[in-house]
Amino acid sequence: MTSEITYAEVRFNKGPTASGIHPGSLAAPKQRTTPHKSKLDFPKLLLISLLILFLLLAITFFTTFIKKVWSCCPKNWKPFSSNCYLISTESKSWHESKHHCSAMEAHLLVINSKDEQDFIIQNLKNNFAYYVGLSDPEGQRHWQWVDETPYNANVTFWHAGEPSDRDERCVILNYRPQTPAAWGWNDIKCFQNQMSVCEMMKIYL
Rank of each mutant, 00 (worst) to 15 (best):
T6F: 06
Y7T: 15
A8V: 10
R11E: 10
G15L: 07
P16E: 13
T17P: 03
T17L: 15
S19H: 08
S19Y: 05
G20E: 06
G20W: 07
H22M: 09
P23Q: 09
G24S: 12
G24Q: 11
P29V: 10
K30W: 04
Q31A: 10
R32A: 13
T33Y: 14
T34H: 08
H36Y: 09
H36G: 01
K37N: 10
P43N: 06
K44T: 14
L45V: 06
L46I: 12
I48P: 07
L53Q: 10
L53Y: 06
L55F: 14
L56V: 15
L56Q: 14
I59S: 14
T63P: 00
P74L: 11
P74T: 05
K75H: 05
N76K: 11
W77K: 01
K78E: 10
K78Y: 05
P79W: 01
I87S: 01
I87N: 00
W94R: 03
H95R: 08
E96W: 03
K98Y: 06
H100S: 11
C101L: 04
C101Q: 02
A103N: 11
A103H: 06
M104E: 13
L109S: 02
L109D: 01
D115M: 09
E116Q: 14
F119V: 08
I121K: 03
Q122A: 12
Q122Y: 10
N126W: 07
F128K: 08
V132T: 05
S135Q: 08
E138A: 14
E138S: 13
G139S: 12
Q140F: 09
R141S: 15
Q144L: 12
W145Y: 08
W145A: 00
V146N: 06
T149R: 14
T149G: 06
T149E: 14
N152V: 15
A153E: 14
V155C: 02
T156L: 04
F157T: 01
W158N: 03
H159T: 08
G161C: 10
G161W: 04
P163G: 11
D167T: 08
D167Q: 11
D167Y: 09
C170Y: 01
C170R: 01
V171L: 01
V171D: 00
I172R: 01
L173R: 05
N174F: 00
Y175I: 14
Q178G: 05
T179A: 12
T179H: 10
A182T: 13
W183M: 07
W183Y: 13
N186S: 08
I188T: 03
I188S: 02
F191T: 05
M195T: 01
V197P: 00
C198M: 02
E199F: 04
E199N: 07
M200N: 05
